[in-house]
């Protein structure tokens, strides 16, 4: 049975190097490898690898632009990085044999690597970055005064709405982190159980399901972040004028 908490592999004083941290480092290495490979091949006449990377980035940028409009250039780096990081982290847990290599402690195997997103610290960290970056971009775009009027007002009705918005910001943090953590951790558990029961063939449909879940969860997290950023970077006045123009 996979424990909720990540298992420490090495202890460096008060700092535990856990298997999810090692997995996060593996994800970093993969991403840095992609960056190096891309930088090496980058040219005006693209090769196959550059075409794939450019197509993905272009499509995601267009998607961001269709949602956020002129704010797309600010939101895109967060949206894209969340997607890439979470996707690779999710899929890293599906590498065949990843949970079979590790340390044996008290008769149980502690794998060196475990999907980083099956660790609440990672998903909570990502959610914190998402929420803080959203508010940082909002203040930068709208200015502190306009930003604060979203949450604080002398009008009782608006004050109530502002309170709900404040609560909403905390629920964003919880929903983003626990959704990702829950889905990926559950996938780890399901795959662990199925692989224990049936070593061959039968785990394959579950493995395929987890590939889909990993992709969907990466998209959900990154797209929600993009939507939150887009909403918070638009002032109430702009929202109203947009609604009027739609009508």
């Amino acid at each position: 049975m996979v424990p909720f908490a990540p298992e420490p592999i090495v202890r460096l004083g008060f700092f535990n190097v856990t298997n999810t941290l090692l997995d996060a480092i593996l994800v970093d290495i993969i991403i840095i490898g992609i960056i190096f490979a891309m930088r090496k091949r980058l040219s005006l006449v693209p090769g196959r690898f550059q075409t794939v990377v450019e197509t993905i980035l272009q499509e995601f940028y267009n998607l961001t632009y269709s949602v956020a409009g002129s704010n797309a250039s600010k939101i895109f780096p967060y949206f894209m990085t969340f997607f890439i990081f979470i996707l690779i982290a999710n899929w890293s847990g599906l590498i065949p044999g990843i949970s079979a290599v590790g340390l044996r402690e008290n008769g149980t195997l502690v794998p060196f690597l475990r999907a980083a997103t099956s660790d609440l610290n990672v998903t909570l960290g990502l959610s914190l970055v998402s929420v803080i970056a959203t508010h940082f971009l909002s203040v930068k775009k709208l200015g502190p005064k306009t930003y604060l009027t979203r949450y604080f007002s002398l009008n009782p009705l608006n004050m109530y709405v502002g309170l709900l918005e404040l609560i909403g910001e905390f629920t964003k943090l919880i929903s983003l982190s626990f959704r990702l953590f829950g889905n990926i951790f559950a996938g780890e558990v399901v795959l662990g159980i199925i692989s224990t029961l049936f070593a061959f063939v039968l785990p394959l449909p579950f493995l395929f399901l987890e590939v889909i879940v990993g992709l969907v969860q990466a998209l959900v997290f990154s797209m929600l972040t993009m939507a939150f950023m887009s909403v918070l970077m638009t002032s109430h006045a702009e929202e109203i004028s947009k609604e009027v123009s739609h009508q």
Binding site: L21, I25, I32, I35, R39, V53, F76, T81, D119
Partner: peptide
């Protein structure tokens, strides 16, 4: 499994990756 130190390390890790991707991948591409 919540661990404030690990949480901080993961946030730092992600911010570094965000900077690297933004500076060396998205911008040039």
């Amino acid at each position: 499994g919540f661990d404030p130190v690990l949480l901080g390390a993961q946030i730092l890790n992600f911010l570094i990756i965000l900077y690297l991707l933004k500076r060396f991948l998205y911008k040039p591409v």
